[in-house]
Design a protein around this nucleic acid. Sequence first.
DNA 1: GCAAAATTCCGAAATAATAGGAATTTTGTA
DNA 2: TACAAAATTCCTATTATTTCGGAATTTTGC
Lengths: 255, 255
Amino acid sequence: MKKVATADRVLSILRLFSTERPEWQVEDLGAELQLSASTAYEYVGSLVGAGLLVAGRTGHYTIGPAAIELDLIARRVDPLTRNAREILRKLVEESGAGTIGLLCRLYQLQVMCVDEYSIDPPPIETSYERGRPMPLIRGSASKAILVNLPARTLRRFFDLEREAVAAMGLGRDWESFKAETRRLRRSAPLVSIGELDAGALGVSAPVFGENDLILGSIGLVLSAEAVREDSARIESLRTLVGAAGQAVTRALLAP
Amino acid sequence: MKKVATADRVLSILRLFSTERPEWQVEDLGAELQLSASTAYEYVGSLVGAGLLVAGRTGHYTIGPAAIELDLIARRVDPLTRNAREILRKLVEESGAGTIGLLCRLYQLQVMCVDEYSIDPPPIETSYERGRPMPLIRGSASKAILVNLPARTLRRFFDLEREAVAAMGLGRDWESFKAETRRLRRSAPLVSIGELDAGALGVSAPVFGENDLILGSIGLVLSAEAVREDSARIESLRTLVGAAGQAVTRALLAP
DNA sequence: GCAAAATTCCGAAATAATAGGAATTTTGTA
DNA sequence: TACAAAATTCCTATTATTTCGGAATTTTGC
C-alpha cells in the first residue's frame, strides 16, 4: 500500500511513545528521528492538533485524548467485544478460582487482547493485557486463531514466519505445517503451557464471524501449578471454554 | 503551533471515524474530503501503516490496533488513572446502591472520563463514559475542574466561552464569573442535577497534582429520583466524594 | 520580574504530493 | 477453479509543500 512520506514521518513519532518511555520532549523526538528542531515542532504540532499528543507539563508530551477516544470507538463498535463481554464474565465466574478470562482478536497477522476479566487473578505474570499486541504463533489464545486461518492466509503466514513455525515444532515445510494445523484445529479448545509466560497455562477456543471466518479467541489463563496433574479440572475448563467460544460465535451470527 | 499540511490532511481522516460511522470505504473518505481516489488510498495507506486504521472486510476500514495500544500506554502511564483506580472502587462500594463512579481528567480545555466503575448501575442514561470528551462547563465532574483552574487559564476559558458561561448562569462578565467560581470552589464537593443528563445527579470533588495544579475530578453519578429530598444521603455522599478526592491528591504526591 | 526554556517565525532550495486514468491484484461467487 | 466485479496500485509531469538553520519571540519557573 503506497503511503505519504511526510505523513509517515509524522506518524513515526507516535511509535516512539511506549510504556517504557511515555513522555518526550520535542528536542529528543527530533534527535531520535534526525529532524531539525523546527521540523520536530511542526510534526508534534500536527499530532497535537489531531489530539494524539498533548503537552502535560510544558515541553513534555504524552499520548493525548484522541487515542482514548479512538479506543472508545473501537470498543463500542467491535462486534466481537460487544457480543463477548457477558460471555467472558460468565466463563470466568464458572471457571472457579484463580483464572483470568481473555478475549483476543486477529489484527492482520497479529493478535491483540481486546478484553480481559478476572475476579480472583492467579499469582502469575501474564503477557496478555488489553491493548498489547501478541505474536500469532505462541500461546493458546494465539494458536486457536492461527490454526483456523483460511488456507491462503495461513500460507502467507507460513512464508513470512517459516523459522518461527519450525522453532515452535509446527512443521518444517508447508505440507507438514498444514497437517499440524489441521490436527490442532480438530483438538480445540487448545491448551498451552508456558509458551508465553513461565508457569502459565492457557485454554482457548476460536471465535468465528460471518462466513466462518476466524475473528479471534476466548479463553482462560491460570497457574500451571494449580492444575498440575489435575486433568479432570483441565478437561472441565476445556468444556467451558469451548462452549464459550461457540456461544460468542452464535451471538455474532444473531442480529 | 505550526503544522504540516499534508500530515494534517491525512490525520483529518481519523476524525471521520466515529461511533455513528465507524467503518468507511476509501472511496467515501475521498469523497468526504474531496480527494482523488489515488490520494485517498495513499492517505489511508499511511494510517494503516501506522496501525491506526485496519481493513476489516476488504475495502471496509475501521480503527486499528494502534489506537488500542496507545490507549494502553495512556492508561498505564497516567498517574491520575493509576493512583485513583482503587480509591474509585472503594468510593463506589461505600456509596451504596445505584451509583456510578467516574474519574475525569482535564485535557486542554476539555474534560474526558478516563475511568469508570460501577457495581449496581442506576437506571438512567449517563453521558460520561471512558473516552468521551465532555465540555468543561456542564456537569459536576467538569465544574469541579473548571472552578479550580489557575486564574490565567480560567480567563482564557472565559474569553472563549463567554456565551456558554452566561447561559449556565455563571456570570456575564469576568468579575462576576471569577466571584462565582470562587464561591463554587469553596463549596466543594460540587453537586449538580440534570446538567448533562435529565434525571442524573452528580457529586464531584477536584483532584490536584504537583504545585496544586488541577488535574481532574472524581465523583459519583446517581439517579436524582433516588435521593429526592434525602439531603442526608446527599451530604454523606459529598463527604465520601470529598475524602476520595483528597485521597487521590495525596496518593499523587506520594512516591 | 527575570533568566532560561520552549516555541514560533522566516524564506529559498530541495523534495514530495497530487490527480486521473490505465493496469493489476484481490475478492466473492458460481 | 474460474470468472466478473471490486479494490488497489502504478504511472509521471506539474504544482505545492516541506525542510532547514538560526534569529526572534513567547512562555515558564523561580
